[in-house]
C-alpha cells in the first residue's frame, strides 16, 4: 500500500475520517428536519466569508465561521416565521452569498490559487493545523450529540412537540444550525465550498433510506461519509482526478445504491390530512 507512505496522503486520510464523521452527523440533522436547502445556503455563506478573509488578508476560516454563523442566525427565523415563503427567502440569501463570493474573488489581486482551492477543496494539501481544527470540531459535534441525544432526537423529529413538553427546542434548533456552520467551516479547506454540502447531504440521505432508527442512521451515515472520503481519495489518487469531486461522486453513488435497495421505497408519500382512522 504505497499510497499510505506519503505524508500528505496520511493527512488526507485523517481529514477524510474526521470530515466524514462531522459532515455526516450534521447531515443527519438537516436531512431529518428537511432543511437541506438551509444547509446549502450556510455552506455558501461559509465560502463567501472565507473569500472575504482571503481578499482582506485575515484568516479565511474566521471569515467562513462568521459568515456561516450569521447565515444560520438569519435563516433560522426566516424559516420559522414564514413571513415570506422560506424557499424564496432562503434562495435570495443563497444567491446573495454566491454573488458575494464571486465579488470577493473578483476583487482579489494576483493569483487566485488559494481561492480556487476553497472552491474545489484540496484534501491532499491539508495541514496539521487544519486537521487539529477538524478534529476539535468533530469531537465537539460528537460530544454534543452524545450529551443532548434525547433533546436532538425530539427536536429533529417532532420540533413542535419538543417545544410543548418543555424541551428548550429553539436553543437546540439553533445549536444544530450553528453546528452545521462550524462543521462546514472546518471542512472547507479539504472538501471545498462548492462540494462540502454534498458530503453533508449524501451520506445522511443514503442512511435515511435504510433505517427507521435515528441511532442506526447516525452510524450508517458516518460509515458512508468515511467510505465516501476514503474511496474518493483512492480513486482520485489512481485516476489522477480532483479529490473533492471524486469524494462527492462516490457519496452520490452510495446514495443511489441506498435508494435502489431501500426498504422504504414502497412507503407511500407524506401523509396528507385527512387520514384514514
Amino acid at each position: 500500500m504505497s499510497i499510505l507512505q506519503y505524508h500528505f496522503m496520511q493527512n488526507a486520510i485523517l481529514a477524510g475520517l474526521l470530515g466524514g464523521i462531522a459532515c455526516s452527523v450534521v447531515g443527519v440533522f438537516v436531512v431529518t428536519m428537511h432543511l437541506s436547502f438551509i444547509g446549502v445556503c450556510i455552506a455558501h455563506a461559509a465560502f463567501a466569508g472565507a473569500l472575504l478573509g482571503l481578499w482582506l488578508g485575515f484568516n479565511p476560516l474566521i471569515g467562513a465561521l462568521l459568515f456561516s454563523l450569521a447565515a444560520a442566525a438569519i435563516i433560522g427565523p426566516v424559516a420559522d416565521r414564514g413571513e415570506l415563503n422560506p424557499d424564496t427567502s432562503i434562495g435570495i440569501i443563497f444567491s446573495l452569498m454566491l454573488g458575494l463570493a464571486f465579488l470577493f474573488m473578483g476583487l482579489m489581486h494576483g493569483a487566485r490559487t488559494e481561492a480556487l482551492n476553497l472552491f474545489w477543496g484540496s484534501i491532499l494539501t491539508v495541514t496539521r493545523q487544519d486537521i487539529v481544527f477538524l478534529a476539535a470540531t468533530t469531537g465537539l459535534i460528537v460530544g454534543l450529540v452524545v450529551a443532548f441525544y434525547k433533546e436532538i432526537q425530539a427536536v429533529i423529529c417532532h420540533r413542535q412537540v419538543a417545544l410543548a413538553v418543555g424541551i428548550p427546542a429553539t436553543v437546540i434548533f439553533y445549536g444544530l444550525l450553528f453546528s452545521t456552520g462550524v462543521t462546514i467551516t472546518a471542512s472547507l479547506q479539504s472538501i471545498g465550498g462548492l462540494l462540502i454540502y454534498c458530503l453533508i447531504l449524501n451520506p445522511a440521505a443514503a442512511a435515511y433510506q435504510l433505517t427507521y432508527s435515528l441511532k442506526k442512521m447516525l452510524f450508517i451515515a458516518v460509515a458512508f461519509g468515511i467510505v465516501s472520503c476514503w474511496a474518493g481519495l483512492a480513486v482520485s489518487y489512481w485516476l489522477d482526478i480532483p479529490s473533492g469531486a471524486a469524494i462527492v461522486i462516490t457519496s452520490a453513488i452510495i446514495f443511489g445504491l441506498a435508494t435502489a435497495f431501500s426498504p422504504k421505497r414502497k412507503v407511500k408519500g407524506w401523509q396528507r390530512v385527512p387520514l384514514a382512522g
Binding site: 434525547k150 433533546e151 419538543a162 435515528l214
Partner: peptide
C-alpha cells in the same frame, strides 16, 4: 398539549415508543 393530526414524513426515523417517551424529556431535564 395535543394538537390535531399533523402531516408527517412516513420515513421519519423514530418509532411510537420513542415518540411517547419524548413526553418525559422536559421534566427529566438536560
Amino acid at each position: 398539549y395535543v394538537a390535531q393530526v399533523e402531516r408527517i414524513d412516513p420515513r421519519l426515523p423514530i418509532n411510537v415508543s420513542e415518540t411517547v417517551t419524548v413526553g418525559c424529556y422536559g421534566r427529566l431535564g438536560l
